[in-house]
Design a protein around this nucleic acid. Sequence first.
RNA 1: GAAGGUGUAGCUCAGUUGGUUAGAGCGCCAGAUUGUGGUUCUGGAGGUCGUGGGUUCGAUCCCCAUCACUUUCCCCA
Length: 461
Amino acid sequence: MQVTQPSLVRGTRDFSPEIMVKRNYILQTIRKVFEKFGFLPLETPSIEKLEVLTGKYGEEGDQLIFKILNSGNYLDKISNQDFEEGSKKLTPKISEKALRYDLTVPFARFVAMNRGTLTFPFKRYQIQPVWRGDTPQRGRYREFYQCDADVVGTKSLLCEVDIILMINEVLKNLGVSDFTIKINHRQILTGLADVAGAGNKVADLCVAIDKLDKIGIEKVELELKERGFEADSLAKIQPLLALKGSWNDKKQILETQFNSSEAGKKGIEDLNKIFELLSISQPNLNLEKDWHLDFDLTLARGLSYYTGAIFEVKINQVSIGSVSGGGRYDNLTASFGVPDLAGVGFSFGIDRLFDVLEELKLFPENTQTSTQVMFTNFDEIAEKYALPLVKKLRDENIKTEIYPDSAKLKKQFGYADVRKIPYVIVIGSDEMQNNLLTFRNMQNGEQQKMSIDEIIEVLKK
RNA sequence: GAAGGUGUAGCUCAGUUGGUUAGAGCGCCAGAUUGUGGUUCUGGAGGUCGUGGGUUCGAUCCCCAUCACUUUCCCCA
């Protein structure tokens, strides 16, 4: 027999039971909040037609799509000429399917396909793995999970408010207290470009500004110069980027700066409305202190399809990138021939959240998912005696198992110990004679003889 | 696409200026304790030193190639 060296595809991971318990804890927390806000689950296939995915992520993105070779003789219809034209032209001929690259495009495809039957505004959340043919690095995988929630078919700023509320609730439920929701608005960035007298270079401005906290103001200015910004226009933006203070402080300064920028005014107006709605939903709460909001002019987010409010969440005690982000877009489905479908969405990065909770030791001690009580297996007679009792405990919804082999008790107890099973029931001849079972508490080592009904009472308390 | 780093026991890693028998901690197995884990003590198993080639009397160590993993830049979550 051919022996295979067991190994993983690089950039992929196994999730052991210990890790899955923790991941599920995070996912359940998120799911519960999403559903509380009226979002419903959606799943789409792992594989999509290649043509659905290509052209949506830019040229570099297209290269990172995992393609699937056609089944059967995929070279059947390929001519020598096809070969000579190179891999770029050959690829779509031998690969018609690919693994999804993100959740947004499949979602857009779904909305476009079902626009006739969906009720708008349509709210969905989607938690599924996505694949990227990238070389893996720290915190970057070739298979990883995205956790998206979107509303399409409305321009209402109530959606943005809900997102802020959901982020707060999820993080609070996970026990994270020191975090910041950075918020900005694409139109404000456009306003910024207008102030600089470079209204047509918003995209360049965004790309450069996005790196601000990473590479510092000097390098950003350098990059902006390279991208054709004039020195005096840089001088106009620079003090704005360094603005400090509360929303109201910044707003006043920006309003005067933006008096000739329609876009800038609109951005300010939107954010102000969002904050106003938030305050109405819960008066007396402070934007910065209670909602963890931080209006950050330097927040840009690389993705070009955002058109309205954008946000990103940072955990302050942990030096890790953002754990959540999102924004409003005007045209989710345009590339599928369905125009004018606006929406807003955001997503949680659960791998990063996992690391955050691990570092801050915020995972609950008892996840309550493991076995509560184990029967030892002394011999065949005891095993038969135990079986109906096992059934009885399980009927009481108590997580119960019986050790499968008549191994030495030392081994059986060792197993219970490693599995952190809190109670063990020992059944031997004495126990069977009196119908009193030895019930051992593994935490403190105390044990006593009890009837099965007494044991159930203890376990159900 | 570019530049580095690392591959030695199940895991984390020492080590060898080239020399007989390659080590530690943890884990695993067994015993002390024949009906009791987590502590302690004793013993044991477990290695093609990533792979292929070269230099050499001799290579885990030096050289070359190759593969795997990993980090940074670019980009991204």
